[in-house]
Design a protein around this nucleic acid. Structure first.
Length: 153
DNA sequence: GTTCTTACA
DNA sequence: TGTAAGAA
């Protein structure tokens, strides 16, 4: 399994030029330069004024492209991107922690499964196992009673 | 061969 | 926003 630093190196060192960026995202070079002019994306700007994009910027470009294809204006798409980035920043941090303390069981299809988040306790001291279920057409949380700790008679 | 800027449609 | 020109 790749180490944390390997991930960082990949993320930091992987760079692509505007040609590749345009090819893989479906956004024209003209658009990429325009978005940069507007301050929506920031290239790594290496040598000779030749643009280079980080993996993160590539993701942003792909995100914007998706919103545009959905019919949103560029300005709206950018706003959505900022919110998305904030969300992902916290979510990924949470994800790294979760990956160490959470169990995942794949279902038969291999497309979904059950995520066992761990123990939760209600106000009356009843303990539950919190599970997240996801499959092709639905996703939800559920509580599984662990043992009956009820102090009621 | 690719990318850059500028300009025009 | 696509395309073309001329330079890097």
């Amino acid at each position: 399994m790749p180490t944390k630093s390997q991930f960082k190196n990949i993320f930091r060192n992987l760079e692509v030029g505007i040609g590749e960026a345009s090819k893989v995202t479906g956004v024209s070079q003209r658009q990429l330069r325009y978005w940069e002019e507007k301050g929506y994306i920031v290239p790594l700007e290496s040598d000779g004024g030749v643009r280079t994009y980080s993996l993160g910027t590539l993701m942003s470009i792909a995100f914007l492209k998706d919103r545009l294809d959905d019919g949103y204006t560029l300005a709206t798409a950018v706003k959505m991107l900022e919110e998305h980035k904030n969300k992902i920043r916290i979510l990924s941090k949470f994800g790294r922690v979760m990956n160490q303390s959470v169990e995942v069981e794949e279902d038969e299809t291999g497309e979904g499964g059950v995520i066992k988040f761990g123990k939760v306790t209600s106000e009356d001291q009843q303990e539950y196992q919190l599970e997240g279920v996801i499959n092709k057409d639905e996703h939800y949380f559920r509580l599984k009673k662990l043992k009956n700790n009820s102090k009621n008679a």
